[in-house]
Structure formats: structure tokens, C-alpha cells
Design a protein around this nucleic acid. Structure first.
Length: 291
DNA sequence: ATTGTGGCCTGCCCGC
DNA sequence: TGCGGGCAGGCCACAA
């Protein structure tokens, strides 16, 4: 399913839309209209997007952000820093992909093999589509309709992206309530903490299991109880896992994936894998080397 | 306030 | 063979 690795691939796909002007939009399904900004309605999307030109494709965690220029100044328009002081974009379109969403540009989907969704690739699952003036299209194709679209999504609370998270940030994410330095720390499971998008952005269930498996940390361990040394290992595992699985091409290509089923054995030491719900998600871990 | 839980959504797989 | 229950998890609303 789309975790940050997949969404990063979508972002690269989305760069093919840079410089192109939106001629029309189709909301084929009243799905996932998030309305934090109060403007994400069918009419609001029409007003904001039609006539706009895509300036850039960014990503924070699992959220894809398209910066839009509504002045019609591209290409050859004013430099980005002149468009508006402090913000390069007049408008920002946020796209979320839930579990089963893909981005389709000019009819070509990322050929990612997404887990937990259909192997078919059918345009009937296009929930939101943009038609460009040059005749091309961009669509969010999402069988399960767990994704969504939002104008100007609030990204202020999102944590640092997992691709470049620092040790200090990981320590802060696991060390307890963010605001009270002197607090005794929380009882939350370490897995819940690293999957909390407001603490670290981009890690989903499969990445989390792989990261903890590599770090030798059981998912249910209280985050605040992690020693400094184990936190260092966790941080290293986050960076290494994200980089490694990005190279392999998907969140589902981790080493522990093969053992993530009933009767599975740890690929590292052969122990019978354990399964349980941690952080509200099905979790698999090795009882022998994950403590 | 922080943490946990349930539900949404739908394709697919398994067992009867 | 067909059918239905359970499952998958990102995200959010809600409860405690």
C-alpha cells in the first residue's frame, strides 16, 4: 500500500505535469473531500484548479502536494520567489492515496504492485481526474476510496519526513510527550510512535514492521523505555530501511515480508514469528531477536 | 492531553 | 460451485 516510498514514486510521476495548465476537473465520486481549509468542495475545486498551472510536485510523508500558479504566468513567468513572498504557490492541492490509491498521469499508472488491492487496473476506479489543456490527464485511481483530495491541506503539524529524519527527531518522537521535557514519558508502543504521522511522517504498517525487525526492537515496547543505544539503532534502521526499500521499489519488499503470515519463520534466526495488534495494526515480529 | 478503538471503503481469499 | 465472512490498513472521529 502506499507508504512514503510509493508516494515518492507518485511524486516523480507527477513531475510530468509541471508547467501544464488545468483545463477541467472531474470529481467522479464524492470521495474523500477533506475540508480542513473549508474550500474543498466540488465548486471550490473548480474555482481553484481550472486555469491553474502546476509549478511543482512535493511530498511530505504520504501526502503529495502540487503547487499551483493561478496567475497564468508559466512558463517563462516570474521566478518562484516573486509569485508570492514566502510561498511559491498561489494554491496547493493535496492528494492522499489511502491504502489502494495510485496516481495515473496521461493514462499511465505506476506499475507498482500494490498489496491489498486488485491486480486489475481499471479506470472505473478513477475518483478524481484533471484534464490538461494539452489533452493529457492526471487521475487518482483508488478502488477502496480511502484516499482523498484537499485544497491547501494543513501540513504544519506533520512530523519530519522519514527519509531524512535526524537522530534528535527520532529521540523526540519516542521519548514521550513533546511539550513537557521533564515528563516521565509515555507508555505508547514504539511502533505506534514511529507510525504517528505527526511525529515522523511517512511510515506505514509494513515499513514499521521491517524497521523494527531490522532494529531488533519488539513493536510493543514502550517507546519511552528505549535506551539511547537502541534509539540510535532505531534511527539507523529507519534511514536504512527507507533507502533500501526505495531502491528495491516498494514498501512490501522488506526482508521480513516473507515471514509475515501464519506459520512464518524469522528469516534471520528461524524463530516462529509472532503476530498481534500493536498500535491498532496487525504486527509481526520475531520473539527471539526483537526485544 | 495522550492513547486506544472502531469504522469507513471494497476486492479478494478462504472455507463451507 | 457459489456465497459470505473476514481481512487488509491509512486516516479520522470519538471515547476514555
Amino acid at each position: 500500500m502506499p507508504e512514503l516510498i510509493e508516494v515518492e514514486r507518485y511524486r516523480r510521476t507527477a513531475t510530468r505535469t509541471i508547467g501544464r495548465t488545468i483545463e477541467a476537473i472531474e470529481l467522479l465520486d464524492p470521495f474523500g473531500l477533506r475540508n480542513g481549509s473549508g474550500r474543498t468542495t466540488t465548486a471550490g475545486l473548480q474555482a481553484a484548479l481550472v486555469g491553474a498551472t502546476i509549478l511543482a510536485a512535493r511530498r511530505i510523508g504520504k501526502l503529495l502536494l502540487l503547487d499551483l500558479d493561478v496567475s497564468g504566468g508559466l512558463p517563462g513567468g516570474p521566478p518562484a520567489d516573486e509569485v508570492r513572498a514566502g510561498s511559491p504557490a498561489d494554491e496547493i492541492l493535496g492528494l492522499r492515496f489511502g491504502m489502494t490509491g495510485r496516481l495515473v498521469v496521461d493514462g499511465t499508472a505506476e506499475i507498482d504492485e500494490l498489496l491489498y488491492t486488485s491486480g486489475r487496473d481499471d479506470a472505473v476506479w478513477d475518483r478524481f481526474r484533471v484534464r490538461f489543456a494539452d489533452g493529457g490527464t492526471m487521475a487518482v485511481r483508488d478502488p477502496r476510496r480511502l484516499g482523498g483530495v484537499e485544497l491547501d491541506p494543513d501540513v504544519s503539524a506533520l512530523g519530519p519526513d522519514a527519509t531524512a529524519v535526524t537522530l534528535a527527531e527520532v529521540r523526540a518522537a519516542v521519548a514521550g510527550p513533546a511539550r513537557s521535557a521533564g515528563s516521565s514519558g509515555s507508555t505508547a508502543a514504539v511502533k505506534a510512535r514511529i507510525m504517528d504521522q505527526y511525529r515522523i511522517a511517512g511510515i506505514g504498517n509494513l515499513l514499521a514492521d521491517e524497521i523494527l525487525w531490522r532494529a531488533g526492537i519488539a513493536p510493543g515496547v514502550a517507546a519511552s523505555s528505549l535506551s539511547k543505544a537502541r534509539t540510535v539503532r532505531l534511527h539507523a534502521a529507519i534511514l536504512a530501511t527507507v533507502a533500501d526499500l526505495t531502491e528495491r521499489g516498494g514498501s512490501h519488499l522488506g526482508d521480513v515480508m516473507e515471514a509475515r503470515h501464519p506459520g512464518g519463520f524469522c528469516p534471520r534466526d528461524g524463530a516462529a514469528m509472532r503476530v498481534g495488534r500493536v498500535g491498532g495494526r496487525t504486527s509481526w515480529w520475531c520473539p527471539k531477536h526483537q526485544r
